[in-house]
């Protein structure tokens, strides 16, 4: 561990640039799925523990499509469409029935969904760690000390475009306005003629599509495996808990923060803490929130 620290700060500080870049690349993906969670949490008060499995499902879809040499942009569009429909179906069969139940029911039901999706993906794709190789050029800087694959830059750009598209959609479109109205006061929205059931379905489907898109990006910049979903779920929860609902800049900032934190802990403590790191940061965020609220004589709820 000490050697790793020396490497970082004494022998080759230039590596920091590499780590920071890596952190930003994965952080953008985390932020995308976290924004989806903030959306369903804020609008319909559903805490989706299958969030990470939606991401991994998107990744596997990209993997399968890439096998047939489908170009990346088309893959993206197909995955977004398929995951949107999938999200809608999940809403109709499951979420609609638990939406006005106790919060724990939604948590537990989506945890069940998470287990189910893991098993199905495991049956279809096997338990191996896989990745999509886009065979795109890699750029070197500082005598090979910093390498930046162009696929990662591309993924960052795509994540940015998606985020802009979603924000514009929420601001400008009729549906986006209906979603925001429903999140503020579902009863009033209903009275004013907004079909809240449809809004919920759309929101959940949109979240699913966002996760799928994030999954495509994960599959080209990182690795996917059927059981990796839970770490993404934990990350998105940590981000949303730290950033709050409906605060997009904070979500993006927290996403980058978690990306950096994980990359640094990975370098300093070794890969054994790869899963533990996001979980620990979630616990740290929760304890930190408690301490803030304790001053105000309140609790986290």
């Amino acid at each position: 561990m000490l050697e790793n620290l020396q490497l970082l700060f004494v022998w080759a500080p230039i590596i920091n640039i590499q780590i920071i870049l890596e952190g930003i690349f994965v952080g953008a993906v985390f932020a995308l799925s976290a924004y989806g969670l903030a959306l369903v949490w804020g609008v319909m008060n559903i805490k989706n523990l299958a969030q990470g499995d939606f991401v991994i499902a998107g990744g596997y879809m990209a993997l399968a499509l890439h096998y047939y040499d489908v170009p990346l942009l088309i893959i993206m569009l197909i995955v977004i469409l398929v995951m949107f429909i999938y999200g809608w179906l999940i809403y109709v069969t499951m979420i609609r029935r638990i939406i006005d139940q106790d919060m724990f029911v939604s948590l537990l039901a989506t945890f069940g969904l998470s287990l189910l999706m893991q098993q199905v993906m495991n049956l279809i794709f096997g338990p191996e760690v896989q990745t999509v190789d886009m065979e795109m050029p890699v750029y070197d800087f500082f005598d090979n000390m910093v390498t930046v694959p162009s696929s990662k830059i591309l993924s960052l750009i795509l994540a940015g475009l998606l985020a802009v598209a979603v924000v514009l959609f929420m601001k400008k479109s009729r549906t986006g306005q209906a979603i925001r109205a429903t999140s503020q006061d579902p009863r009033a929205a209903k009275v004013l003629g907004i079909d809240t059931d449809r809004v919920y379905a759309f929101t959940f489907a949109l979240n699913s599509a966002l996760c799928g898109a994030a999954g495509v990006l994960v599959s080209i910049i990182w690795v996917i495996q059927p059981f990796y979903g839970i770490t993404y779920s934990v990350r998105t929860f940590a981000i949303v808990t730290a950033a709050g609902l409906g605060n997009l800049p904070a979500v993006i900032g927290a996403g980058f923060g978690i990306g950096l934190f994980e990359k640094y802990t990975g370098i300093i403590f070794g890969t054994a803490y790869e899963v533990a790191a996001p979980v620990l940061i979630l616990l740290i965020v929760l304890v930190w929130r408690q301490m803030l609220l304790k001053k105000n004589r309140q609790v986290v709820q």
């Binding site: 919060m103 808990t241 899963v275 533990a276 979980v279 620990l280 616990l283 408690q290 609220l293």
Partner: peptide, 28 residues
């Protein structure tokens, strides 16, 4: 001492986090 300041879904997710973290730390 630090979990019961959390309520509802935060407690559930936090306790799930505890289980995952303990498991991951055990194998190191």
């Amino acid at each position: 001492s630090f979990m019961f300041g959390l309520r509802g879904p935060y407690f559930a997710i936090g306790s799930l986090g505890l289980a995952i973290a303990t498991a991951e730390i055990t194998i190191t």
